[in-house]
């Protein structure tokens, strides 16, 4: 299971970084979303990977799942969801300002003229 989770985090992080470095706001937003997914999954694993364990501690010696990373992930999900919505709104505004989704707000002609994809 460690292998599965680790590769999932690695794949999402690398895809996220690649997309974030692109020149279109749409792909940048997708990249940021992937990056936050990877982060959330990583945070979740810091409580160690356990299956079928209670996260309410009744007996400190009995095996249990660590509830704190779950609470942290929940907070992180809420915040990243809100901020993603915000950057989408700003990207849409940028689209109306420039008639294109280039991160430097270049219009379609300018993008072609400067040879930027």
């Amino acid at each position: 299971m460690e292998w599965l989770v680790a590769t999932a985090v690695a794949a999402m992080t690398s895809a996220g970084i690649y997309l974030t470095l692109s020149a279109r706001t749409f792909t940048v937003v997708i990249g940021l979303t992937l990056l936050t997914y990877a982060t959330n999954l990583f945070l979740f694993t810091t409580g160690r990977l356990t299956i079928n364990q209670p996260d309410i501690i009744s007996d400190p010696l009995a095996p249990h799942a660590d509830p704190i990373p779950q609470a942290l992930v929940l907070t992180a999900i809420v915040i990243s969801f809100g901020v993603t919505a915000l950057i989408l709104a700003m990207a849409v505004r940028g689209y109306f300002e420039s008639d294109g989704d280039h991160v430097d707000l270049l219009g379609p002609e300018e993008t072609v003229a400067r040879g930027r994809k």
């Binding site: 974030t20 706001t25 940048v28 940021l32 990056l35 936050t36 990877a38 982060t39 959330n40 990583f42 945070l43 694993t45 810091t46 704190i68 990373p69 942290l72 992180a76 915040i79 990243s80 901020v83 915000l86 950057i87 700003m90 990207a91 505004r93 940028g94 300002e97 991160v103 430097d104 707000l105």
Partner: peptide
């Protein structure tokens, strides 16, 4: 302002992800 704003938000969002990763490592 919108152009600079989008870039500012993107940089800080990546920063927030790194913040969470570092907190995860320290907590772990």
């Amino acid at each position: 302002r919108i152009r600079a704003g989008i870039q500012y938000v993107v940089v800080n969002l990546v920063g927030s992800s790194i913040f969470l990763l570092s907190l995860g490592l320290i907590y772990g």
